[in-house]
């Protein structure tokens, strides 16, 4: 759930989602779910000339499993907080498995 919560804090930010088929989509993060499916608004595809069929698309839903990377705005991220959360979650998941 760590990354689900993490992406929820980034709603409203501009992100670039790079897909496994090398398509990169820039847009405003609208929503995310537990599978890390992503909704983007006001999208623009990088190298639009190579993907002319995407020019008229204004918003999209991206299935989480096709994502390779998400480029994030560093200013929107508290890395210390994020590291603490990751540390907690990893210890917590072991603790849960123990119980």
């Amino acid at each position: 759930m760590l990354f689900y919560s993490f992406f929820k804090t980034l709603v409203g930010q501009t992100v670039t989602v790079e897909l496994k088929n090398d398509l990169s989509v820039v847009g405003t993060l609208v929503s995310v779910d537990q599978f890390l499916n992503i909704k983007l608004d006001n999208i623009k595809v990088e190298h639009e000339d190579q993907h002319p069929h995407m020019m008229s698309v204004k918003n999209c839903f991206i299935r989480g499993s096709v994502v390779r990377y998400v480029h994030l705005p560093p200013a929107a991220i508290d890395t210390a907080l994020l590291q603490d959360a990751a540390r907690r979650e990893s210890q917590q998941s072991t603790a849960t498995a123990k119980a």
């Binding site: 499993s65 390779r68 990377y69 480029h71 994030l72 991220i77």
Partner: peptide, 11 residues
């Protein structure tokens, strides 16, 4: 080079 990157685990 990228400032901040999420990498999906399946890769």
């Amino acid at each position: 080079k990228m400032d901040m990157l999420f990498v999906r685990g399946d890769g």
